[in-house]
Amino acid sequence: MNTPNYSLALALATARWTNSETARRINARAEQEGHRSVAVDRSRVGRWIRHGEKPRPPVPELLAALLTEHLGQPYHPQSLGIAPLRSVRVPLEEAGYQALKANAAAANMPVENYARALIHSALTATGRSRS
């Protein structure tokens, strides 16, 4: 872990929520929806941001819903970096991998991130992606 979650940090900064405010809002929504075992505090929110820790369900969905309501644009746990990502293996011939690697280098991105962006773009173009 120990990789900062810039997506979450940016969303919370856009909302102008402190870590304490974020925790308070999550706990209030959890209680409102009947999730009795949710108890988030400011230090936990800080670890999500600074160390890339991922909260346990239902917190990712609650936080995404709160940000969506507050900011008026859709947020999803995956786009906030607080939900597990699904892995997909794509076997490539050497020539295909070298082309992918060259395109990623031209975009100044790691190959994995470039491949993820390509897949996301393709899914968005077909209307099948929610993140």
Rank of each mutant, 00 (worst) to 15 (best):
S20G: 15
S7F: 15
R25P: 04
A23V: 03
N5P: 07
R29Q: 05
W17N: 11
L8D: 07
R29W: 00
E21K: 14
A11W: 07
L12M: 09
S20I: 14
Q32T: 01
N27K: 06
L10T: 08
T14K: 12
N5D: 01
A11P: 08
Q32L: 10
A9Y: 01
E33I: 02
Y6P: 11
N19S: 15
L8W: 03
Q32Y: 05
P4W: 11
A13P: 00
R16D: 15
G34T: 01
T18K: 13
P4Y: 12
W17C: 13
A23I: 01
A23P: 00
P4N: 03
Q32V: 00
S7C: 15
S20H: 14
T22D: 06
L10H: 07
R16W: 06
R24L: 00
L12S: 09
R24W: 00
Q32R: 10
E21T: 13
A15V: 04
Y6I: 12
A11M: 03
L10D: 11
A30G: 05
R36H: 11
H35Y: 13
Q32E: 15
E21G: 12
I26H: 03
L8C: 02
Q32H: 05
R16F: 05
Q32N: 09
W17I: 10
S20T: 14
A13S: 15
A13G: 09
W17Q: 12
R16H: 13
T14Y: 02
R25K: 12
A15M: 08
N27A: 09
Y6T: 14
L12I: 06
R36Y: 02
I26L: 05
A11S: 04
N19I: 03
A13H: 13
E21A: 15
L8S: 04
R16N: 15
N19L: 09
S7L: 15
E31Q: 13
L10K: 12
R25M: 08
S20N: 14
P4I: 10
E33V: 06
T22V: 01
N27Y: 10
L8V: 10
G34E: 03
R25H: 10
G34Q: 04
N19D: 15
S20P: 02
L8T: 02
T22R: 05
A13I: 04
Y6C: 11
L12Q: 13
N5W: 05
E21N: 10
A28T: 10
A30H: 02
N19T: 09
L12A: 06
R29G: 00
N27S: 05
L8Q: 04
T18I: 11
H35I: 01
W17V: 07
L10A: 14
I26K: 06
A11E: 10
H35T: 00
E33R: 11
A28I: 04
